[in-house]
């Protein structure tokens, strides 16, 4: 789950970069940048949950 989370973080960033590089109109660019940030938040949630799970196993 941790690896998935970090891959999501990276994927979100790449979506943001692609939006900036490939989309010229302001609205679609803004939507895709926000979508990329959303994917990053999802990745962050995965990473956090993976660390909570590891701590639970240790206990």
């Amino acid at each position: 789950m941790r690896l998935t989370g970090f891959l999501f973080l990276l994927a979100g960033w790449l979506i943001v970069l692609a939006a900036v590089a490939l989309l010229a109109p302001a609205l679609p660019r803004a939507v895709f940048v926000l979508a990329g940030l959303g994917v990053e938040v999802l990745g962050l949630i995965f990473v956090v949950r993976s660390h909570l799970a590891v701590r639970g196993e240790r206990e």
Binding site: F6, L9, L10, A11, G12, W13, L14, V16, L17, V20, A26, R29, A30, V33, L34, G36, L37, E40, G43, L44
Partner: peptide, 25 residues
């Protein structure tokens, strides 16, 4: 200044999506 907003968001996305995975790895 509207575009400035977007530039700042791209910076935050870079911190979360690139810097965090890099420093963790």
């Amino acid at each position: 200044d509207t575009g400035q907003w977007m530039a700042q968001l791209v910076g935050i996305a870079t911190l979360l999506g690139f810097v965090l995975p890099l420093t963790y790895s």
